[in-house]
Structure formats: C-alpha cells, structure tokens
Design a protein around this nucleic acid. Sequence first.
DNA 1: ACCTGAACACCGTTCAAGT
DNA 2: ACCTGAACACCGTTCAAGT
Lengths: 228, 228
Amino acid sequence: MPRPHRPRGRTGRPPATSRAEILVAARRIIERDGWEKLTVRRLAAELGIGTTTLYHHVRDREDLLVQLLNEHTEQTLRLDPPGEPRDRIVAAAVAMHDSLAAWPWAAEILTTDGFLARLGEPALRVVETIVAAAIEHGCSPAQAVHLFRSLWYYTVGEILVRAHTVHRHGDQSPAAGRDTFFETGIDASRLPHLAALGDQWPELAAQDTYAQALGAFVDGLLAQAAQR
Amino acid sequence: MPRPHRPRGRTGRPPATSRAEILVAARRIIERDGWEKLTVRRLAAELGIGTTTLYHHVRDREDLLVQLLNEHTEQTLRLDPPGEPRDRIVAAAVAMHDSLAAWPWAAEILTTDGFLARLGEPALRVVETIVAAAIEHGCSPAQAVHLFRSLWYYTVGEILVRAHTVHRHGDQSPAAGRDTFFETGIDASRLPHLAALGDQWPELAAQDTYAQALGAFVDGLLAQAAQR
DNA sequence: ACCTGAACACCGTTCAAGT
DNA sequence: ACCTGAACACCGTTCAAGT
C-alpha cells in the first residue's frame, strides 16, 4: 500500500523534497517578500516541511545562497565575447557585473571565503575568458590573475554599495539622497571642493559609471603589465 | 571615597554612561573576543548596564559602528600627501584603504546607505584630497566625483573580500587555500587557462596588489578624463 | 531624568526521538 | 531511512514601568 504523501512522484521512492523544489520555493519567497525574508525557517515553512528537514538537502544557509546564485548564473551568464582581448575583458566583466547586480541578495555571499571556488562552470567561464584575454594581450599568467582579481574587487564593491543604497526614484525632497556630505553643513574652508560640489554630489553619485570606469581600469592594468 | 570606575548596581549616580566609555568598552570586546562578538547586548553587559540603557546613547547598532569607525579614522587618518596630483590621489586612497583594512569589522558598515555622509572630518579630508587633486589634474568636478567613487568601489571590494578570507598562515595542507578553483578537478578542455594555472591560483590570489592596481586604475581614469 | 526587566519577533543550527 | 519538535544559544529593538 503506497503511502499518500506527496503525489506526482515517480514510481518507487516516496518523493522527498528535492533540490529543485527548494530553489523554486526560495525564489518565490524572494520575489514575494523580498530577499531579506529568505531565512532557513521561512523557507522550510514555505515548503511545508520542518526546518530540520531542510538541513538534509542544504549544508547551511550559505550553501543555499550559493546554490541559488549558481542556478541564476547558469541561466543568465552565457557569453563568448568577440573582438580584441581588451574588449573581451570589458564585456566579460560587464556580463559578470550585470548578472550579479540583478540579484542584490548575492551581496551576502559575494565576499565569503572561497566564494569563487564554489561557483559553477558558467561563472568560471567568465573568469576563464578574462584570464585568457589578458594572456592573449601579453600578460603573464600571474598578471592575468591579478588583473582578474582587481576587476573582481571593483565589481564586488560596486554591487555591494549599490545594493545597500536606497534608490529614491524621483524623490526630490530635501530628505532624499542621504549619501550627500552636505546635509549637515561642512566647513568650506577645510573642505573647499566638497563644499563647492554641494548638493550636486547625490546626483553625480547616482550616475552609473561602472562600465566606463571599468574600461579605464582595464586600460590602466594592461598598460602597466606591458611596462614590466 | 574613591569609587570604581564602573559602579555595578545601584550606587548613587556618578555621571551617566558616556559616549567615550561605550566606545572604550566596545574596543575592549573587539580586542578580547573578536569583532563578531560585538553586539548591543554584550556591550551593555560589558558596561554593566541594561541593554535598553545603551539606546539612550546610541541610536542603533549601525550608529555604534559608525561612531567607532569615526573615532578610529580620527586617530589613524591624518595626511596631506605632497607631490603631483596623480600621486596625491594614490597616497590618499592607500591611506583610506589601510585605515579601513585594519578594522575588518568596518566591512559591516562600509556599504550601508549614506555611509560616506556619516563620516567625520578626517575621513572627509581624504575625499577632499582626492577630488581636489583630480580637479587640479584637469578633471571636471563631475569627473572628479566619479573618479573618487570608482576608487571607493575598488577599495571597498578589496577590503570586504580580504576581511572574509581566512588567512591560513603557513598552512600547507591540501585543505588550505579554499579560494582555489581546482580542488574539484575542472574541465581542462573548457577552461584551459584556469586548468593550467592549477594550484598556483591561491598563491597568486594571496598576493597584495592593491596599491599597484590602484595606480593603474588612477592612471586609466585620468587618461580617460583627459580624452573628453 | 535616567534607567531597566521583560517582552516581541525573530535568527541558524543541533539532536534525540518519533514514524 | 526519513523526518521533526523542541531546545540551544543567541540577535536588535521597544515599551511600560520603576527609581
């Protein structure tokens, strides 16, 4: 007599909660309640299972997040940019950035120890693309790794700062733009340029210059590598 | 009659717990137990006061951390670098980096919304130095702000990744160096350069190239600004 | 005015026990 | 074998009340 547990299973084993089911439920929570609400306990509740049961399928919270991100990169990070090595590096880094920036909760694991090592192949292919292009341009393998790492730091920093910045779309009130130095008057004699910038700062800081500065960074790094 | 510095219990009422006392106690916890243990509750216990009392002196946990960081930058961040604008930018960014990197717990607030706006004058002077030097070099005010912000992203990313990386000093075991792509064999036909790099990656990734890549970034950004 | 215990509303993780 | 309730050891923050 088969136990009436969860139907829609194949013949044989009673269908245990699967990895895929977990990831779908996790995405549902993120979409419905915001990613801050994605906790181990809530996820178990969403699946209708005990919190403990989740630990049979996921090592810990970090593991859950990494699995979620890997699934996401597998779906969004497909590229093989053409062109000069320099342009391939920029294109790969922009693709990496855009894929990660779309999921602000990625910020939580981006800087964890050994993060890159836990990435799946689609993400690693971006690393490969950058390292390969740098070597083709004339970098030594060591220089290529250092170049990738520098771009990675810049990218992670951009994503993390942006993820934590409240975007006040169209809010023109004086309370908007907390990221200005100037709501409390600053000493114009000590900090003349910041004082002169005044309330232009929030506007300038809101502009997206990631890709442009990335280009400058890549050019600077490639030029430096060529000098040695 | 001389009283102990921190009265335990209900002895009269010497001056209420001061901001300075709180910050000293916070630093004591960080030094003794590690910064992960610095919680509102523990800090109150360390001071011998009720958790609630702390909220009379500190708006919330984030405010506590920002106050702590501001005190730290006031003590460590004094500079007025000489030389060419380009070198002044590099020197200021390195000083900012070193000051923040010394306190890994800063990672917790570095990316919070409006963080820069909550900094004290010593920290703002670094921003002023970088913006002023960029303008002196020929940047427009907008370009100078963008330049600062790009360096900020790079710096924050470096600090955050490093702060979360376990440094296995002298650990030569195979388990060491989690940040390698290669403990699980990678597909050499799909990722040839990463495969060729092999176990060299952890060693290369451990090298500190912050200042060198920063120089390249600054050169790249200044060159790009001059082109427009 | 200054301070606080208790409560609220949560966390991630473990483990002995149940089915 | 698979699953789980209950417990452990915490969090940040609030509020009504005490001194």
